[in-house]
Design a protein around this nucleic acid. Structure first.
Length: 986
RNA sequence: GCCUUGGUGGUGGAAUUGGUAGACACGCAGGACUUAAAAUCCUGUGGCUAGUAAUAGUCGUGCGGGUUCAAGUCCCGCCCGAGGUACCA
């Protein structure tokens, strides 16, 4: 007496989940006669909000593929684990004092409970967590290998030169330095690496040797730009910076240089580029990586500075336009700026640099229409024609790119043109084409003019000639430039892998391998120290044999750049994975995840994989053979608007507490588009000052407020649980966080109205929807089908629950095929009719095709059509329903397992062989042709599929439809596409 | 800004890749069952015009052009949304 009711679903799903777990039904063996198939989901970060409905989208799809491949006879590895280090847990720790390990463990438990109840076929015995010492021991070990490695572009293996070069142990570099110095070494190294002889190398002391080797190591230290927030005493991600101030607290942020660990990913740039042609990834992701790597052929050369001994080095891809250069532009951070600025220009330049350095790189790149800059007063000499050209600085030139200086050719570059127009600098045409007075003319396919020896040459010829000239003048050379920069590997944070590094006399040294892992020490608070040192500086008595440890930790991507290898051998204590395991599983056959990882995780993972391969630890050159992008399930984010003013005194000395004052959406909009009245702005200012003084009673504080321009409203995410429609639940909001407790609000019509936006669903945006309710109301099988039914896997779409009833009804109808009106299980042993077989085989064909093509939404529709058809012909025959169960099982494992058992099977449906469709049942003998006149369908006619075109033409031309529309005229043309359509042209 | 991607009924989406636009669902409307409601089942459902009606005509895949016997699909130019933009993962 079983109906597919809420209670029954719960019973069935629990029963099978427990049974499968008890039997170890998903345990995978590392040895098998079957072909291997490795299906991997992207590593989830276990956030405090738990799993949201966006996560399972990809997991369900990959689970369907895993189950399908298993029923097709593959040995399928399908693991799951957690990328457990990360910023959110740390921020939570700072706020609440709870140890991130504790909250992370709790979050992981929640995730696992949620994942289990959706019925995924994960082999949980292989679970890994990046924050476990047994795991990060090997992350540290890999770091050590990369520290002890360099990139030899002239590597020789078995007497053969390796064209792309190879990662080698640093010992081969040292051996060569001892023999010949670095004269004949061809390696990827820092630009400023000096040339030395063997003699000089031998005479280096320990410090000099290490400093020299740092130019070559794959993991090395260098100075890089970061967002420094003095008030918070830490470095911030671009994400945490809004409008030049910290998202939290609204404190000023400036760009400063800091010594940090980096990874020489640029050594692999060419291989990362070439490897893309060998892997089956979505073309857009490959394209994004190509653009990110950004290989360009150009020319790097020097301009002399008039009246000074220095030179400015520029990189350009358009040396052919060098006669059109009318000024140079340096990044405001460029090291020469101070030196070349004339006295008269000093104030202007200093002011400009001060403003520019507080703008994020992203802002500087995006606001191209806002032209700004300053003249240094200095002039450079164009080496091609001896002309004196002014040197400017502007923030559209970025310090980290190329040389941090560009030769400006306003005639043929849009940004240069805008700059020249704005500052009234000359514009010159050197490429033949339309006038460049009003608009830059950018072309790679034209002739060069007004350019001395280049006149009449094509762009390509002129580039070659230009490089030749530069090299002849000995001022530079042709150069391949990559946009890709070395990856910063250090973080000023607590919750990450500690480095296996200590300092002796200020020199970084690796710990001994036997001392791994270097575990994360306990500290009292998770904040940076008062003096701005990273949190690890708080650790008491934490040292390595009396020496100080490295105090920064590794970034989020460290643990996720090799985890797929660990799943192959997750418990190994003597290697990150045993050689025989990595050579059996090799690489990931199917990787499912979002395209947001295109230029981060996916690039870093490829990099580490190549390095590990070169060093002889793994066989795979590429980690992920096939990649499928799942779209994001988007959430509706809500926003509140925090009032912000710049403080008059320097907040870095001692942080004042700034008011939590929020204005409703309409007011924020008026602030933003500057339509707010001065009266209203003044009221807000008064309120702000009042609060500011209340919060800092012992100090006299004031803020800058001259007009409405000085008033800012910063958009902050608010958790959607505190928003009803668009109105904020003020009490809920105040209780959300400690520092919102006394938040003040300026309302509209008595309400606080929130802003709203569709964004990716993410804990950090506080817009997540949890799948638990759906599972408890409808069951896991319905959730699985519904998420697939939502639309194509790779498209992003906002979450909505409309329509879930449809798939639930389908499952009930499917269940009813096996049961009579009273809920008794009844199936017939009668032979199937041809009609029934056609329905079955059409479904088998469509579903198998859909899974192979990752088109899961269309299979769900097909299942519905099939079940509707079988219902309407009242088919309950075993010979139809049994194979159908196997076909549906990857999508809805619980219901099908139950029905499979009821049909009398003692064996598991998990290992049932996926049926193969028989084309014989599907062939049609005739086709109903749409008859169109001038492309518009006017009628339909049925013809045998093998009827010759000529016969169809005759019949159609004689038909009533054509007679009616042609009104006696003779048709000009008739097109017959066999099996498809007929079109008559009048 | 730049790179990538998407835009089809009231809603999610389908369309064998240039060949009948709107499959399958949701929602809505009407009906059956019921004292009633829920559940279930049946019927209808892109817009506009004409008709009591079956139906007929016409417009229609973000906007504007183009190629073609034929365009949601290909080409050119726009508009809008989303992801990434190097310390979120």
């Amino acid at each position: 007496m079983a109906e597919y009711s809420k209670e029954e679903i719960k019973k069935i799903e629990q029963k099978w989940q427990e049974k499968w777990e008890k039997e170890g039904a998903y345990k995978v063996s590392d040895t098998s006669d079957k072909p291997k198939y490795y299906v991997l989901d992207m590593f989830p970060y276990p956030s405090g909000a738990g799993l949201h409905v966006g996560h399972p989208l990809g997991y369900i799809a990959s689970d369907i593929v895993s189950r399908y491949k298993r029923s097709k006879g593959f040995n399928v590895l399908h693991p799951m684990g957690f990328d457990a280090f990360g910023l959110p847990a740390e921020q939570y720790a700072i706020q609440t004092g709870q140890h991130p390990a504790v909250t992370t463990a709790k979050n992981i438990e929640t995730y696992k409970r949620q994942l289990r109840q959706i019925g995924f076929s994960y082999d949980w015995s292989r679970e890994v967590q990046t924050c476990e010492p047994a795991y990060y021991k090997w992350t540290q070990w890999i770091f050590m290998q990369l520290f002890n490695a360099w990139y030899n572009k002239k590597a020789i293996v078995n007497g053969q030169l390796i064209i792309d070069g190879k990662t080698e142990n640093i010992s081969t570099l040292i051996a060569e330095l001892e023999k010949n110095g670095n004269a004949s070494i061809n390696a990827v190294c820092d630009d400023e690496t000096p040339s030395i002889t063997a003699e000089e190398w031998k005479n280096f002391n320990e410090r000099e040797k290490e400093e020299f080797l740092q130019h070559y190591r794959i993991a090395y230290q260098s100075e890089t730009m970061v967002n420094w927030c003095a008030a918070l005493g830490t470095v911030l991600s671009n994400d945490e910076v809004k409008d030049g101030v910290s998202e939290r607290g609204g404190y000023p942020v400036e760009r400063i240089k800091m010594l940090q660990w980096s990874m020489r990913i640029t050594a692999y740039a060419d291989r990362l580029l070439k490897g893309l042609d060998t892997i089956d990834w979505p073309e857009p992701v490959k394209e994004m990586q190509r653009n990110w790597i950004g290989k360009s052929l150009g020319c790097q050369f020097k301009f002399e500075i008039s009246n000074l001994k220095s030179q400015i080095e520029v990189f350009t891809t358009r040396i052919d336009t060098v006669f059109g250069v009318t000024f140079l532009v340096l990044a405001p951070e460029h090291e020469l700026v101070k030196q070349i600025t004339t006295e008269a220009q000093q104030t202007a330049v200093e002011n400009y640099v001060e403003v520019a350095k507080n703008r994020s790189e992203r802002e500087r790149m995006s606001e191209v229409k806002r032209v700004s800059g300053a003249f240094t007063g200095a002039y450079a000499v164009n080496p091609f024609n001896g002309e004196q050209i002014p040197i400017w600085i502007s923030d559209y030139v970025l310090a980290g790119y190329g040389t941090g200086a560009v030769m400006a050719v306003p005639g043929h570059d849009e940004r240069d043109h805008r700059f020249a127009k704005h500052f009234n600098l000359p514009i010159r045409q050197v490429v033949e084409g339309p006038s460049v007075e009003e608009e830059a003319f950018v072309s790679w396919d034209a002739k060069i003019v007004n350019s001395d020896f280049m006149n009449g040459l094509t762009v390509d010829e002129a580039i070659a000639a230009g490089i030749k000239k530069v090299e002849a003048l000995k001022i530079g050379k042709g150069k391949v430039n990559f946009r890709l920069r070395d990856a910063i590997f250090g973080r000023q944070r607590y919750w990450g892998e500690p480095f296996p590094v200590y300092y002796k006399d200020g020199l970084p040294k690796l710990v001994e391998e036997k001392d791994l892992p270097i575990t994360l020490p306990e500290i009292d608070e998770y904040k940076p120290t008062e003096s701005g040192e990273p949190p690890l500086a708080r650790a008491k008595d934490w040292n390595y044999k009396g020496f100080t440890h490295e105090l920064t930790t590794m970034p989020g991507w460290a643990g996720s750049s090799w985890y797929w290898f660990r799943y192959m051998d997750p418990k190994n204590d003597s290697a990150f994975a045993a050689k025989e395991k990595t050579s059996y599983w090799k690489d990931v056959d199917l990787y499912m995840g979002g395209s947001e990882h295109a230029t981060g995780h996916l690039l870093y993972s490829r990099f580490w994989c190549k390095a590990l391969k070169d060093l002889g630890y793994v066989e795979a050159e590429e980690p992920f053979k096939k990649l499928i992008n799942q779209g994001h399930i988007q959430g509706i984010s809500k926003f509140v608007y925090r009032v912000n003013f710049a403080l008059m005194d320097n907040p870095s000395k001692e942080n004042p507490i700034t008011p939590e004052l929020y204005v409703s959406r309409g007011i924020a909009q008026r602030i933003h588009n500057k339509t707010i009245t001065l009266t209203e702005a003044t009221e807000i200012y008064n309120k702000y000052i009042e609060e500011l003084n209340k919060l800092n009673p012992s100090r006299k504080l004031s803020v800058i407020f001259n007009d409405i321009e000085d008033l800012n409203a910063i958009e902050n995410h608010v958790d959607i649980q505190y928003v009803d429609g668009e109105t904020l639940d003020i009490e809920g909001f105040k209780n959300w966080r400690e520092y919102y407790k006394d938040a003040q609000f300026i309302l509209e019509d008595g309400k606080y109205i929130c802003g709203s936006e569709v964004e990716k669903m993410s804990k950090s945006k506080y817009n997540v929807v949890n799948p638990d309710d759906i599972v408890s109301n409808y069951g896991a099988d319905t959730l699985r089908l519904y998420e697939m039914f939502l639309g194509p896997l790779e498209l992003s779409k906002p979450w909505n629950m409309q329509g879930i009833d449809g798939v639930y009804k389908f499952l009930r109808r499917f269940w009813n095929l096996f049961h009579d009106k009273n809920g008794n299980f009844t199936i017939s042993e009668e032979a199937a009719t041809r009609e029934e077989l056609k329905v079955l085989h059409k479904t088998i064909k469509k579903v198998a095709h859909d899974i192979e093509n990752f088109s899961f939404n269309t299979s769900v529709s097909e299942f519905m059509i099939c079940s509707n058809e079988l219902s309407s012909i009242k088919c309950n025959k075993r010979s139809i329903l049994e194979p159908l169960c196997i076909v549906l099982a990857p999508y809805a494992p619980h219901i099908t397992a139950e029905l499979w058992e009821k049909m009398g099977h003692a064996d598991s449906i998990l290992d049932a062989t996926f049926p193969i469709h028989n084309e014989e049942y599907l062939t049609e003998s005739s086709h109903e042709y749409p008859i169109s006149i001038n492309g518009k369908v006017r009628g339909k006619m049925n013809f045998a599929l093998d009827m010759p075109k000529e016969d169809i033409e005759k019949i159609v031309l004689a038909s009533e439809t054509v007679q009616k529309w042609s009104e006696g005229k003779t048709p000009k043309k008739i097109i017959v596409v066999q099996g498809k359509i007929v079109n008559v042209v009048l």
